[in-house]
Simulated scan of single mutants.
Amino acid sequence: MDAIGDNDRDLEAPTGPAGLRKIIHVDMDAFYASVEQRDNPELRGKPVAVGGSAARGVVAAASYEARAFGVRSALPSVTAKRRCPELIFVTPRFDVYRAVSAQIHQIFAEHTDLIEPLSLDEAYLDVTQNKQHIPFATEIATLIRARIKEVTGLNASAGISYCKFLAKIASDLNKPNGQALITPTMGPDFVATLPVKKFHGVGPATAAKMERLGIEKGADLREKPLAFLQQHFGKSGNWYYQIARGIDERSVQPNRPRKSVGAEDTFAVDIFALDAARAELAPLAEKVWRHCEANHLSGRTVTLKVKFTDFQQVTRSRTLPRLVLGADEMLEVAQTMLADLFPPAKGIRLLGVTLSTLEGIDSVPIADQLGLF
């Protein structure tokens, strides 16, 4: 089905002085892999992994044919090849992905200037007041997806709702090549039935902690008082309290400068050995750098995040006098900070790496860019 509701007429109903917003989250389907299959007919219908190789590295993106075997982004290439022996590895072409992304954003701009890019392949659009005066956001989403297909030959999925939180969730509901609508009348009940592990912003470790507190679905979260959530989740408690009620007042922010790029992973078995922990940092640093490379970014501050088995969390940061030169240097800095925490008194359940103090590479003097790519 194309929508959870029949239409978005109740997105037109006023809700206070500002009125009700109409938010679309557009997410390209298997973007990097789909571009490669589009440009190389021999790859169509076959399991494709962008990035890495059969011997080393990590997967940056996987086609839907590869995903059927459990291949996904950030998966070590060796593991991906073991899961799918017929997997075809393709070298990323970020210049092509950026060019296609620019085409897609031009299509967005035909309808609104309120566009908040999240990455090359996804963005929020506020179409409450749109350039073509189309009353229904579902119609705009349909037009955008059709136009993307016409111009780029690629499929996009979309989520439509009255807030960013629900629009992003909705875009996953009918993937690939579909769209879904969550109306204001549906929002609270929809959230109530949703497992908390499906909430964007709730990672595996937080979901596990919630489950230990008896919180498995949105309805369980909604039953908890604000003070309880703040006690157990700190500043995030207020956010959980709001989204459990289908409330997200964040606006779509065009040209929002990104403050940091990070990646983290929660482990099925706690880590105690330094060598094992160092190895787990490598794919995280590569994932962060791929995003930076794709968006012509680098940064000066590397932050290491460590969460222990009892959920105690520590962070360590180091700022370089110049921009980080690549994934290897980022990894070296993070591993140096990690070594200072060993031997740990308790097991490590999560590691994360973040690069901040970001700058656009195009704005950096040529002398400082040497070695960046």
Rank of each mutant, 00 (worst) to 15 (best):
F190Y: 15
A61K: 06
S260T: 04
P204F: 02
A205Y: 04
L370T: 02
T354Y: 15
E150P: 06
S356V: 07
V35L: 10
T193W: 11
S363G: 12
D340L: 12
P176W: 08
K305C: 14
S356P: 12
A334S: 08
Q103V: 04
T315I: 07
D121Y: 14
E293A: 11
L20R: 15
A219L: 09
E332N: 13
I107R: 10
V364M: 15
S251G: 09
I144Q: 03
F228R: 08
D265M: 10
T183D: 03
I271H: 06
A66H: 15
R245E: 00
H105G: 07
A268I: 08
A227I: 08
Y64R: 09
M210N: 00
Y97L: 05
E264A: 06
E150S: 14
Q129F: 13
Q313Y: 04
A207I: 06
T319E: 07
K197Y: 12
S119F: 11
A74Y: 07
K287W: 04
R222S: 06
T91P: 11
P92M: 11
L358G: 01
N177P: 08
R56L: 05
G153Y: 11
G16R: 12
D340Y: 11
F199L: 11
K224I: 04
K287C: 09
N130S: 01
I107S: 02
S363D: 12
Q132M: 07
A273V: 04
D121A: 15
D310E: 02
K346D: 01
N295V: 02
V353H: 14
L323T: 02
S251C: 07
R82Q: 14
P76A: 12
F199E: 00
I107Q: 14
I4C: 13
R145H: 10
D275A: 15
V353W: 13
L20Y: 00
A80R: 10
P343R: 09
V353T: 05
A30H: 04
D95E: 06
R67S: 10
Y241R: 05
F190T: 00
L351R: 06
A180F: 14
L20I: 03
A227V: 09
A192R: 12
A62K: 11
L229A: 00
K164E: 00
T309G: 03
H296E: 01
V59I: 15
L297T: 00
V364S: 11
L125A: 03
R258H: 10
I361T: 06
L87T: 03
Q103F: 03
P283Q: 05
D328H: 08
T79R: 15
Q231A: 13
G360R: 15
D172V: 01
M337I: 06
F311A: 03
L166T: 00
E86D: 15
P257N: 02
V191K: 01
T301R: 11
E359K: 12
M1R: 12
A66T: 03
M210L: 14
I182C: 10
I348T: 13
G347M: 05
K235C: 09
M330Q: 06
M28S: 12
E264G: 08
F190A: 02
E216N: 08
K131I: 04
A137Y: 01
G218V: 02
S171W: 13
V196P: 01
G218A: 08
M337A: 14
I134E: 15
Q242F: 08
F108Q: 00
L87C: 13
D220H: 11
A367R: 13
L143A: 03
L20V: 03
T303W: 10
L118S: 10
F165M: 05
E86H: 14
F69N: 05
M337R: 04
